[in-house]
């Protein structure tokens, strides 16, 4: 069973590495473990908030992939309503509401990454959740589009969601700071 998932992931990784049609995504393995992917998202300049940024993220696939979704976690700091912000532990606990604590820092919270059988938050219907026909490619494309248009209905970072709604200027400033930091990482 586990090796079926490994075979599938190996094939998908190979396909993504050879496919030239996917702009702005590059991926590789962490410690040669096919269940741990390191991906680099290069955001196109057209994006208002994160354009031009290079964001590192990590995809962790479960043993029963593709029946269960992988987890995705940003490793570059990113201020976004749908991903937990990197911050010191004290502000962390102050910021985060009830449901968000489930996620460690940087974890991406979008509906297609939620397993099909449970809905801890009662926000989204089953139709938006994980389906085994999704692939790493579709996940990453969804995440890139999430960066462009956050879903503030089920925020993981309450502060970011609030700012996104109420103070777009300040929000943009924080995003540009992320982008500059991500370029400095290079």
């Amino acid at each position: 069973m586990a090796s079926a998932a490994a075979g599938l992931l190996g094939r998908q990784l190979k396909q993504m590495q050879t496919d030239k049609d996917i702009p702005g995504i590059s991926c590789g393995l962490v410690d040669d473990n096919v269940f741990e992917w390191e991906v680099m998202l290069m955001i196109s300049d057209e994006d208002r908030h994160y354009g031009g940024g290079f964001f590192r993220a990590r995809l962790t696939f479960p043993e029963d992939y593709p029946l269960m979704p992988p987890k995705m976690k940003f490793e570059s700091p990113i201020f976004h309503p749908n991903s937990i912000q990197f911050s010191s532990p004290d502000t962390d606990s102050a910021n985060l509401g009830s449901s968000s604590k489930v996620y460690p820092n940087g974890e991406v919270c979008i509906s297609i990454l939620h397993p099909p059988e449970e809905d801890k938050y009662g926000y989204e219907s089953a139709s938006e959740r994980w389906s085994p026909v999704q692939s790493p490619e579709t996940i990453l494309l969804s995440v890139i589009s999430m960066l462009g248009s956050p879903n503030d209905e089920s925020p993981a970072n309450l502060e970011a969601a609030k700012m996104w709604r109420e103070d777009p200027k300040e929000f943009r400033k924080r995003c540009r700071a992320n982008v500059r930091a991500s370029l400095g990482d290079e």
Partner: peptide, 20 residues
């Protein structure tokens, strides 16, 4: 096999993995 495994992971309301 893929289909029955995928359906068995869904809740009571089974849907097509592609079009739901």
């Amino acid at each position: 096999q893929c289909l029955s495994e995928a359906l068995s992971h869904q809740q009571d309301n089974k849907t097509c993995p592609t079009c739901r």
